[in-house]
């Protein structure tokens, strides 16, 4: 069975398009189980088998290099090599099948020292704290817990929310000195987050919609990934984690 502390992170890579995972990001995931998804998206007029025959060996070589890079940091690695017409569908399927806690939306990351974790009331706190603790426990990083509220009256509520998260994270073995809290009053929470993310290197955020067969990424995380320069780690909202959070 799964070790409850083990976090499983899906890392999708467009393997034949020269997409690289930054070394810093590889190091950040060194304590995780990395589900490495090498995919090659092909247009509809091409049969996946056809692309497979021509590109499989090349893709395998690229994949092996990536596996070595991750394993060198101590991460456990599982791999998938998929030829698909629809990368989003493939990423979602593997995330479900491989029971991943989070999905990496890779962006270049020159350094990874500062992580921002936006938090909302109705989001899957349990899995987020597990993922943040799993990543941050053995890394020299600063973690900002971020919460946006609409007016000053809501600030105390936000403080309480972040306090409870700090409590969860320290229980999970994260050093409290690494944590800082930021409650921001803003009319546009998304823009506030993007601004806040500007001086951070990685975003760890919850998935918006519960995904069974729906879209994997809520609009928010996609927009954050587009508008920030660093990688975004999307924490999935699985049925399992929902059940857990309900029972807690």
């Amino acid at each position: 069975m799964r070790d409850p502390d083990d976090i499983r992170v899906l890392v999708p890579v467009a393997v034949l398009e020269g997409q690289v995972i930054p070394d810093q990001m590889i190091r950040l995931l060194s304590q995780s189980t990395v589900v490495l998804l090498a995919y090659h998206e092909i247009p509809e007029q091409t049969a996946p088998e056809q692309a497979r025959e021509q590109f499989e060996s090349k893709a395998r070589i690229e994949l092996e290099d990536l596996v070595e890079a991750f394993e060198a940091t101590g991460a456990a690695v599982e791999t998938h090599l998929v030829f698909t017409h629809d990368a989003d569908q493939t990423i979602e399927r593997i995330a479900m099948d491989a029971d991943c806690d989070a999905v990496l939306l890779p962006n270049p990351a020159p350094t990874i020292d500062r992580i921002i974790v936006p938090v909302k009331e109705d989001i899957n706190i349990e899995t987020i704290s597990k993922v943040v603790a799993g990543i941050g426990r053995d890394q020299d990083v600063e973690i900002t817990l971020f919460h946006a509220v609409e007016n000053d009256d809501a600030v105390p509520g936000g403080e309480t929310l972040l306090d409870s998260l700090v409590g969860k994270l320290t229980t999970l073995g994260l050093d409290q000195k690494k944590l800082s809290r930021s409650v921001v009053v803003a009319q546009k929470p998304l823009q506030a987050l993007i601004d806040g993310a500007a001086d951070h290197d990685v975003v760890v955020m919850g998935e918006e919609e519960p995904t069974i067969r729906g879209r994997l990424f809520g609009e928010t995380s996609e927009r954050v990934a587009e508008q920030t320069v660093g990688p975004v780690l999307v924490v999935r909202r699985t049925l399992r984690s929902e059940e857990e959070s309900e029972s807690n």
Binding site: P48, T79, H80, V82
Partner: peptide, 9 residues
């Protein structure tokens, strides 16, 4: 070989 071909239609 372990390689997967996604079904998308």
């Amino acid at each position: 070989s372990g390689t997967e071909l996604e079904r998308t239609i």
